[in-house]
Amino acid sequence: MTSSYLVPLLKIVVILNAVLVSVTFMTLLERKVIAWVQVRLGPMRVGPYGSLQPIADAIKLLLKEDITPARADKWVFTLAPIVAMVPALIGFAVIPFDREASFFGYRVSLFVADINVGLLYLVSITSIGVYGIILAGYASNSKFPLLAGLRASAQLISYEIAITMMLVSIVVMAGTLSMVGIIDAQYNAHVWYMFVQPVAFVILFIGGLAETNRAPFDLPEAEQELTGGYHTEYSGMRFALFFLAEYANMIVVSSVATTLFVGGWLRPFPNVQWLGVLDYVPGWLWFLLKTFVFIYVFLWIRATLPRYRYDQLMRLGWKVLIPLGIANLIVTATLKVLF
């Protein structure tokens, strides 16, 4: 009884809180990283080196007036931020942080569920997340959010195809759809899939940038063209929900990249005996470290690259990434059958 209901419930509570706190502080990290790239200081006023800035932001957003435009579609307007946020959070259900860890003598697996369709589950959850953006654009009853919503959904659908092709290549390599199974397969193959599937790795990363609407693919939020994007009409906490969903999605994409390509919780060179000293670092810490590197690269790219034009974005998606994805899948499958 306790092990089948209480333990998963505890894990869900811990993971949800950890995600929301890290998402809050990612806003600070982003502002700091961009500031350093641009030789500025970034937030410095609230707390030492601005470390309490996210809390001040959260309080401000909570206390702001909640405005619903007079001619908006009220139900859908309320529903949209929720629909955007929920998929971003339930994606964490299949992210494996570590195989096992012991707490007060109990051995507990550090993932909520290891279902045998884990990877497909993540893809389907992402496809549901699109609704939040489309509905926000529609319900605002205003032309800029509508245009941004259409842009965002077209972008998400296009890049989802390329990403799914890449994921299928990985599934062919590992022979399983389970996230834990894919990490085990990398352990048994004695190599991270980043080195076996470099094309898939790069395309997944580019696609991940597009999926999370991050620069240089942040066209749904191109403020010079669209004032603010699909959330222009939103204020206060509802606006914050869209923001939180975007950052939570960044963490999901980074964790998926960590799991599929750099061995998840495995330490570097997991099969080399004389590096056993690295085992003193627990697996979940390796996982978080690798995920953090990916998130940092996300921010770094935002500070470095200018935004794409919309037709360039679509051309890259349909004429470069998808054909490359199909070719990569065919080559992977052929080699898998031959050897």
Binding site: V117, L120, Y121, S124, T126, S127, I128, V130, I157
Partner: peptide, 14 residues
């Protein structure tokens, strides 16, 4: 179940 969500709810209805 996952394919139902992916293809119908996530693809066709979008």
């Amino acid at each position: 179940a996952i394919i139902q969500i992916l293809v119908y709810a996530g693809g066709i209805v979008v």
